[in-house]
Design a protein around this nucleic acid. Structure first.
Lengths: 342, 342
DNA sequence: CAATCGCTTGGTAGCGCTGTCAATATCGGT
DNA sequence: ACCGATATTGACAGCGCTACCAAGCGATTG
């Protein structure tokens, strides 16, 4: 008949319980909720577990308890430095907790995102961190019907699925353009790549601010769906210059484009900021050490990841975070590349 | 007495089997090894599963089969662009397979690595990808006693635990220095940050090549344990210049340092390459578009990740890869910053 | 002093799937 | 027509843990 699938040396919870002189269920409770045990048993189970080198079997735990200790993270890109920082924050926050991370890459496709969402939710994650607020209608329905904590990161907006942490890309772009206007620049170009929803909102912010100043001109906008790169920054800037040679400043939707623009200026012997001012976005580390130093919009990416993970943890602990929507803001880092027009 | 933990709407394998008119175990086989079923049953189970929207319960599968479909990945840093590329390769290779990735960050600590290794292995991963060849003795013992495929990435060396893919950092540095020597440079400085094992091997390559040329001088070496950054590149270069003003070239252990060096040169009005040549390492995208363009050692990071994952997959499929150690090599990208000395 | 309460502990069964082995069906060869 | 070999299918039990309920127990209360 059916075999006995004996596993010889393996230490199971039952062994720990036996050594501690308690029932398996009591030993189990030690790991889920040690407070529920009397002090004596708690110590006995603890030392028994340590003595045997017990490591819980997560699959068995997940099967029996009908939930996992995995927090799903959906981000659009693994290469983008921006997400590297966010991820680092998430990993740091979850380090040492009993939760692990399941990471997936949507490649900027909301269809892919929906597919991954279904995949994740089928395994009953403990929590979920998703990027942005532009999910498919189906994704939204799915997320709303799920009872695990969900944090939307990278931006803020109305109607969070559950929780949200980020900042307003519209306002950030507005502030960058206002900064340039304030420093005396008028013909401000816009360089955009990839054009994901957040970049679109930066474009909206640019448009709105320029219009309010009576300076809006469609010719000043150069965008592409191509993924961003430093080289692309140079190319886009060259395009802009060809279309609108009169420009006196450029707002780049990220720092790679800004650096590429700076190099292209060098190549063309265009003085920065005397002839062209440059402002980037994200404030990556190199912006402060280029020559000239490059102005940028600082965003709090590490904190975003860290706080998002902490919001999930708090919710799982039963302590609902004070705020379910957190605006981390941004700040304009004013450097040489956008010094006041002389 | 004990309750019936009925789960109402949930579709389990049993439901699929019933609809298909087969036993649960036959339905199970459809998912693990469809070839073993007769064509008719295969189709019946397939359509039943689709009709019910069946999604297997991974926890139950893992518990019953005593193994998971998770491939563990241990890397030292989430921020470093180098690993972002490697990771992208791994994720791409595993995309669409039934395996998922468990990623952990060792933070360049082999003790941390050992801890994570134990954690991973306790859950019986399907495979493992680890960074480098400098594990603790205990880590090595553990890995050798495990029967899942293991790939060590980033470098090559003797005695792989199982499989290995990378390149020789010693040879790569040697080639970079030889390139500079060949172009007429003699006083070649070395800039190193973080000094992890691979960077150490690049230093060894530098040392060896300079010694062979009769040009070795300890004063030309500037290193720090601080994590790398563009800003740090400028600082280290300034240190080097203070110690050895006579240098005519600098080899930087990565491209961030190289870019920082370039900026520092700009700041000091030192002409590149006329007064100082620069060579970086990794050939990140921006190296080709800086002014002047920066020479670098190109490494195949994406391919490394991709191939590493594919080696794991092949092994799991029972097809042992042709080579268990793959040297992906490198190439010297000669650009303006190391043009022949005039 | 019985009834009640809260805290701690244990018994039982089952989470959903698959390994093992047996049983049955199919097939070719002599 | 018979035999063994091969392909296909199924029965059973159990992977290791925890949900649920109940029971033990001392303390509190009217």
């Amino acid at each position: 008949m059916a075999r006995k699938r004996i596993t010889p040396g393996k230490i199971r919870l039952a062994e720990v319980a036996k050594l501690a002189g308690v029932s398996p269920i009591t030993a189990s409770r030690f790991f889920r909720n040690p407070e529920a045990l009397s002090v004596g048993k708690r110590a006995r189970v603890e030392s028994a577990a340590k003595e045997l080198g017990y490591v819980p079997n997560l699959a068995a735990r997940a099967l029996a308890s009908q939930r996992t200790e995995v927090i799903g993270v959906l981000i659009p890109s693994l290469t983008n430095n921006v997400f590297a920082d966010v991820l680092r924050g998430i990993y740091d926050a979850l380090d040492g907790s009993r939760y692990s991370i399941q990471l997936a890459n949507t490649r900027y496709s909301i269809l892919q995102e929906e597919r991954l969402l279904r995949l994740f939710l089928a395994q009953k994650p403990a929590g979920l961190i998703v990027t942005g607020i532009n999910q498919t209608a189906d994704s939204r329905t799915i997320m709303e019907s799920v009872d695990c904590p969900i944090v939307q990161i990278m931006e803020t907006g109305p109607a969070p699925v559950d929780m949200m942490i980020g900042f307003s890309h519209f306002d950030a772009a507005k502030a960058a353009i206002s900064h340039l206007l304030d420093r005396g620049y008028r013909q401000i170009g816009f360089l955009g790549a990839r054009m994901d929803p957040r970049v679109q909102r930066r474009l909206d912010g640019y448009r709105s601010t320029m219009s309010e100043a009576g300076l809006f001109d469609e010719r000043l906008i150069v965008t592409t769906a191509i993924p961003t790169s430093v080289t692309l920054g140079g190319t886009l800037f060259a395009d802009l210059l060809a279309k609108a040679p009169e420009i006196d400043a450029v707002f780049c939707v990220n720092d790679d484009l800004a650096l590429g623009t700076l190099f292209e200026c060098k190549r063309r012997h265009v003085a920065v900021p005397d002839q062209i001012a440059i402002v980037g976005f994200n404030d990556l580390e190199f912006m402060a050490s280029s020559v000239p130093t490059l102005s940028s919009v600082r965003t709090n990416r590490y904190e975003m990841g860290r706080n998002a993970a902490m919001m999930v943890l708090e919710t799982l602990d039963g302590r609902r975070p004070a705020e379910s929507v957190i605006d981390l803001g941004f700040s304009i880092m004013e450097r040489q590349s956008s010094a006041r027009r002389s």
